[in-house]
Design a protein around this nucleic acid. Structure first.
Lengths: 229, 229
DNA sequence: GCAAAAGTGTTTTGTCTACACCCATGA
DNA sequence: TCATGGGTGTAGACAAAACACTTTTGC
């Protein structure tokens, strides 16, 4: 086989940068780390790494997320290829950005310390290196758009969640208040949530019923006709 | 500056593959070429090339499109990064796919001959190399989705076009017939088309008025609230 | 005068929006 | 008993969908 055919072409470094979203019940947050290498060492940065010769780009993204968070089986999606020739002063690095949705309490504080990581509210992110600010902006827009048609919001919530929690999440993502009655009606009308007998009693006297997302029921509708919000 | 920091990481070949759409008045088509290099020489393939060290990825895509079609200022958009480690038997090549929309009659037959290129109806594309079939499928889905919110359909039509032509285009993209009255009402209600005095007389006795897309009028609406279909 | 495509309105249906009160409970 | 957040229904506005006939003109 003829790698020979390609040998006159340039080879580039291909990086992964990952915007990791979390939701604490009130705020939509992003996870940032203090960069460990030059250039821009100790500056805030997205989690990232390099793609290896022997792995697929998507697998590299999964690997890097796993190395840095200990998590696997996470919802991840390609975001955009950032490819300006001078985007990284350390070399010719093309970056594939991904966004990931994790349940915020699964990312433990030990790991936060190990990697010098911190959650920031999306409206209060610090100065970040290179084009990472643009990546975050784009990721947020993509999340807003995606969450309106696809059942990915649940990735940010515990397996059991209440309708008020779910509404808070959508309000945080869209940065706009929603009408409680319209919201519940619409979500429940999709028929993809299972109501549990159990109530969440922390945040109110009355307590709110838990629900779970029913993937099987969703699959049946998936023929694209689903509008979440 | 410390490219040194990155030097232990693998360098990969980064290719561009471009799905070029055209519309002949009836059918949505894709442009394919006979591949000029091994492996898989002489097989049908998308237009492609490699990103150079010194250029941005987006510019590379523009350059490659220009080299192969002679066209510039073309609507192009990143599609997806295809990064399986074994996707190309000729080497470790990651491909950024793009889709482009061109006016079909601007791609001349000389160029078709030069590059061994051919238009294929999207439903009748030949066997193509590597993962290019997947790329085409994804591009088509993305086009369908994008064209519903963004005024990019016009990129596939001559500057002057008739409403029946525009409707044919949408019908071809969505592979579904549309109601003529509802279609015209909706499109015209957006207030982004200018009606000309002139008629197109080829395709009917009566003749159909020409319209032009008015970019300035569109810009005023662009605050995302636009639904084309 | 007829074939072939362009142009044009109205009614029905469904979806989205706005809006306010009672309920359950722990303190 | 009261403060707090959870839960529920209806009416009006608006947008989408269904549907058929008249107009123009080259042959």
């Amino acid at each position: 086989m003829s790698i020979i055919q390609y040998k006159n072409n340039d080879r580039l470094l291909l990086a992964i940068d990952c915007i990791i979203f979390g939701f604490d019940g009130r705020y939509l947050k992003g996870l940032f780390v203090k960069r460990q290498i030059e250039p821009q060492k100790d500056k805030w940065s997205l989690m990232g790494g390099f793609v290896k010769e022997t792995e697929s780009v998507n697998n590299a993204a999964g690997r890097i997320l796993n190395e840095l968070t200990g998590l696997s089986n996470i919802y991840m999606e390609q975001l955009f290829c950032f490819g300006d020739a001078d985007r990284d002063p350390g070399g010719r690095v093309v970056s594939m950005s991904y966004f990931a949705l994790i349940k915020i309490d699964e990312y433990t504080s030990e790991l936060m310390n190990t990697h010098n990581a911190r959650w920031f509210e999306l409206n209060k992110i610090p100065k970040v290196i290179f084009d990472h600010k643009q990546m975050v902006k784009l990721a947020k827009e993509r999340l807003q758009q995606k969450v309106s048609n696809h059942p990915i919001g649940f990735e940010l919530l515990p397996d059991k969640f209440t309708l008020p929690q779910l509404q808070n999440l959508y309000e945080a993502i869209y940065e706009t208040p929603l009408d409680k009655r319209n919201f519940t009606r619409k979500i429940l009308s999709l028929g993809i949530l299972n109501k549990l007998k159990e109530k969440e009693k922390e945040s109110s006297r009355k307590g709110a019923f838990y629900y779970m997302f029913d993937k099987a029921k969703y699959k049946k509708l998936e023929n694209e006709g689903v509008r979440f919000i």
